[in-house]
Design a protein around this nucleic acid. Structure first.
Length: 466
RNA sequence: GUCUCUAUAUCCAAGUGGUUUAAGGAGGGAGUUUGCAAAACUCUUAUUCGGCAGUUCGAAUCUGUCUAGGGACUCCA
């Protein structure tokens, strides 16, 4: 497959270090607040990538971390007078629950910062020993960016003059203003762990490098992982710093391929903590079906910016509805495992740097063709078998159409209303049989008043919630 | 300010030099089907790809420039 490498800025043929195996590390959330749509987008993009890699035949090892040591967590805990763990446990489990509703499969490894301290100590120790890190008078350990000739080559930034000047002024603290903390010495009333460098807590960037070495890296390989992913906002400074740490502490280049997903914008503006315009996933899930959100957030190319708005989301729902209507049409029939030309084309589209638009176009064409043949030659066995197989393929590759189609269309309607609708439909059938269309239309109005729509088919009358 | 990305029909959105005188979806229009609807299906809806200039036999696709809008440079998916 082809992957756009956001560091080389070009589409490259994916060639893993080990034939048939792919390792992937993605920066996960810091668990101090509810997940927003941006977290959802990132998780969905890499969930899709993993599914595509597996469909291509790779044995995938996918790690996504949980950052559970952080200034913001500490701040929140003290504000709410709660234990750190109470905060992190709460947001970790809500993150998991919300991801599950989006159909995001669990990563193979989900390391937590609090469980990876040994690996961080080892990495920091190596950096100190090799002269790439230093301890300040205040007890902090900093990475010495000047000691790494390749620093800033990942994000291709240019060191500015004023940054160099700061070097002299702050000589008793940091050697260079670009230097970043590997270990922050303990301050009063904050979270602290014992370490070879004194009590304190790790800097943010060090956990990813350490986790990758611990869980994914092969000591003899050139790269620590095949693919490293995350949101576009992480390229600098987070990924730059990760890359520097790994490069200087180990004989690894951090990743062979870098993938960065674009932002989710609200009203054309980046959703951001500082702007306070975050759209929380839990709020979106109150209003919209998780699978519709999945379809919507995945419906445009992962690298582009995504402007969230309700009208476009409803268009996505209509497209997903079409998959379910076809599924409903073939409901109850046995599915054979036929590999079709459509499936090959679908995988080819997604194998081209996750070209979801092409993939969705293929799906729409497949649906139209299947419906057309079912309209004109309903007993076409081979077509039914292939169509069912195609729908099953879409389920595993994209996670679309995974529910029972009747339940999908009737979600949000309580049992009492369902019974009432069933009763009205049977009354309407009586009237229709008697060709009393005035009565049947009156009954239809009563049914529509329940917030549902009905459709007469050769198999009987069905209803869907609107 | 420095760097960087984007600009395709009413809207969303593929397409990175010729098989595309531009996929797919939504919306609009006309039909088929239906007791009527809904759903489904068919046809239709950009001679044109932000403006200008250039490279080329040939450009939405490459180069320059201008315009508009995002983003990074500070915690962020």
């Amino acid at each position: 497959m082809f992957i756009y490498d956001s560091v080389q800025k070009t589409k490259r043929l994916f060639t893993p270090m080990q034939e048939g195996k792919a390792s992937l590390y993605v920066c996960g959330p810091t668990v101090y607040d509810d997940a927003h749509l941006g977290h959802a987008k990132s998780a969905l993009v890499f969930d899709l990538l993993v599914r595509v890699l597996k469909a291509e035949g790779y044995e995938v090892t996918y790690a996504r971390n949980i950052t559970d040591i952080d200034d913001k967590i500490i701040k929140k805990a003290s504000e709410q007078k709660k234990e750190i763990q109470e905060i992190t446990n709460f947001y970790t489990s809500s993150f998991h629950a919300e991801m599950a509703r989006l159909g995001v499969q669990k990563p193979d490894i989900e390391p937590k910062a609090t469980e990876s301290l040994d690996a961080m100590f080892a990495l920091i120790q190596k950096l100190i020993e090799s002269g790439h890190a230093y301890k300040t008078q205040s007890g902090d350990v900093y990475f010495d960016t000047a000691s790494d000739p390749l620093y800033l080559t990942l994000s291709k930034r240019i060191q500015e003059e004023d940054e160099k000047q700061e070097r002299v002024e702050n000589s008793d603290l940091k050697k260079n203003s670009a230097d970043f903390a590997l270990w922050k010495s303990v301050k009063e009333d904050s979270l602290s762990f014992d370490s070879p460098f004194g009590a304190g807590r790790p800097g943010w960037h060090v956990e990813c490098s350490a986790m990758i070495e611990k869980h994914l890296a092969n000591p003899h390989a050139e790269y620590a992982v095949d693919i490293h992913g995350g949101g576009a906002d992480l390229l600098f400074p987070h990924h730059e710093n990760e890359a520097a740490q790994t490069r200087c502490a180990t004989n690894h280049t951090l990743a062979n391929y870098w993938m960065h997903n674009g932002f989710v914008n609200i009203n054309g503006q980046k959703m951001s903590k500082s702007l306070g315009n975050s759209f929380f996933l839990k709020d979106a899930l109150k209003v919209y079906d998780g699978e519709v959100l999945r379809f919507y957030l995945l419906s445009t190319h992962y690298r582009g910016n995504f402007n969230f708005n309700e009208e476009d989301l409803l268009v996505s729902k209509k497209r997903l509805d079409k998959i379910y209507r076809l599924k409903k049409r073939l409901f109850g029939l046995a599915c054979a495992n036929e590999k079709t030309a459509f499936q090959k084309a679908l995988l080819d589209a997604l194998g081209d740097d996750l070209n979801i638009s092409s993939a969705l176009a293929l799906i729409d064409e497949m649906i139209a063709k299947a419906n057309e043949t079912l309209d004109t030659a309903g007993k076409h066995k081979e077509l039914k078998r292939d169509t069912l197989s195609n729908l099953a393929y879409i389920e595993t590759l994209l996670g679309f159409g995974v529910k029972n189609p009747f339940e999908y269309f009737q979600s949000g309607v309580d049992e009492k209303t369902k019974a009432k609708i069933a009763e009205l439909i049977s009354q309407r059938d009586e009237a229709k049989k008697a060709k009393d269309f005035a009565t049947s239309d009156t009954i239809r109005d009563l049914i529509l008043a329940c917030g549902v729509t009905i459709m007469d088919t050769p198999q009987g009358t069905f209803w869907e919630s609107v």
